[in-house]
Amino acid sequence: MRYIFLLASIVIFTRQAVAISEGQSVPAQIFSLANGDALSISKFQGQVVYLDFWASWCGPCKRSLPWLQEIAERFKERGLRVVAVNLDQNSVDGQKFIRELGLKALEVHFDPDGVSAEAFSVDSMPSSVLIDKSGKVRAVLHGFRESEKEELVTKIEGLL
């Protein structure tokens, strides 16, 4: 009886999170975001895309976004697109954050409902996905670590 109860609990409470992983193709759908904004990753076909999910209240995002801006400027000519998706439930917080840090080189979208985050199975903040020219995921990053920057730059350069 105890085991049946335990099994039922596991079945009911275990969520089958299908996280996006390396080698997978990115979702082809167009995400309808708030304020009439839309995000379509497939429109970047033929370009290397660094897709970053962030929020203004997320501590590591304060370090990752300025670095992303640096990367966006450095590899812009070679065809890298850095797309930063803000997941603040109140987009005004995200806009203020962008203004304060002067992040002008980033393509920022605001997704307060987390539609795109749901599709990309975001499980930590920040989360990033590196997508190659054919639309395949080449790296999935959870969080932001200074020690991973070099390796990531090498990966981006390899894809460009």
Binding site: A8, S9, I12, F13, R15, F53, A55, S56, W57, L87, D88, Q89, N90, D93, G114, A117, E118, V122, D123, S124, M125, S127
Partner: peptide, 16 residues
């Protein structure tokens, strides 16, 4: 009873 619980998952982006 398991279905009647009030548990709700808070997604990572809902933790503002």
């Amino acid at each position: 009873i398991l279905f009647a619980t009030g548990c709700a998952e808070v997604k990572p982006w809902q933790r503002g």
